[in-house]
Design a protein around this nucleic acid. Sequence first.
DNA 1: CTGCATCCACTTTGATACTG
DNA 2: CAGTATCAAAGTGGATGCAG
Lengths: 222, 222
Amino acid sequence: MQACYGEWVKRREFGQYCGIARALELVGERWALLVVRDLMIRPRRYTDLQEGLAGIPSNVLSTRLKELEQSGIVERQVAPAPQRGVVYALTPLGQELEPALLALGRWGSTQLGDPQPGDRVTPDGATLNLRANFRQEEAAGLTASFELHARDLVVHAVVTDGKLTSGIGPAPEPADLVITAEVPDDVPASYRAIVRAARLGQVELKGSKKLLDTFLRVFTRP
Amino acid sequence: MQACYGEWVKRREFGQYCGIARALELVGERWALLVVRDLMIRPRRYTDLQEGLAGIPSNVLSTRLKELEQSGIVERQVAPAPQRGVVYALTPLGQELEPALLALGRWGSTQLGDPQPGDRVTPDGATLNLRANFRQEEAAGLTASFELHARDLVVHAVVTDGKLTSGIGPAPEPADLVITAEVPDDVPASYRAIVRAARLGQVELKGSKKLLDTFLRVFTRP
DNA sequence: CTGCATCCACTTTGATACTG
DNA sequence: CAGTATCAAAGTGGATGCAG
């Protein structure tokens, strides 16, 4: 605590009556939004997070989780019978960060060149890109499921009456269209690579093939 | 530079092929997004920013501006004849951060209680709230201009064929509807306070009074 | 005045090691 | 698996200096 304009404020607070400043106080610390990003895909254990956030110091992860829990963004759950252990999950408040996170990701994606050697390319990224590029307007009334493959990368997107559910791995029910992209060996398997292949027709399709155009219309932007 | 999993990366980079991580590398440092926020309203001089970001150390502001300029987000302009001096402005790339910033602000606003004594309440906040709460769908085809007053706070919103322009101070052309909110003396004059007053009918109107419902429909959410 | 640069105390982070 | 402990390095906050 320290003096600031006659008032006592925590060092980390900006002291502005502004939603953006408040958001940054809560999730603006280094690594915080990346933790939220990982949890947006599904709940994770401590070591899952450490793995997904390659390079985060253990003590920093520990601190961030406590802060996020304190803020009501993350929930610490002691998992029941099957795997038992500690699991971290987003609260509803944390899930409400999704639009902001996707908007940030859309902007940041434009500033991504090609993947550098050493860059981590995870299925999480593909799942988030699926959500970030999803065009609600184009999907109105649509019901269809897709599965995307590129080498060992597999993600799914299920659209039910215009609403999207997406995740890692195969679709829970057999997908209406399975897209398997032919990606050169020297290019990492990413959402971007799949879309590029799909546009060039360098894909193998299984299922309702005319859904490919629908996929491109609903899940990609020019 | 330092070693990390066999590759050399800058300490501040996250080493993930992910739009969100990239965005955070570029605008995730402390104060960076608040600088962008201030510039989103209009270009500013160094001292304007210092004032708007109450409490930012001079050296940190200086560093952030250089980093943002380096990243192509901010442009340093030497202002011409009238006022001369240095002016910082957003580049087009910087302006593209607006959707992300507004989404973050919408989330953060839900985590704002009432203004604390000592909180800075600026016209910038009201202008951004105007943009953040603007509902494109509801404004389709609309052309109308509004001016909001609450004590010394004045902001304007001009909707032209469904597109919004907003800023501090009176509208460039006389507004179709001028809303003057009656705000208790002990409550800071903010967008929130104006909306609350408008909903309760505690406003004085000048101009086309039936536009008040349109305003509430287009510029507020439940 | 504006637009920084410098100095220094303090805090946070990164890397690694270690424990229940 | 789920953290804690430790310590060096980098970053931040605050004050002040200073040229144009």
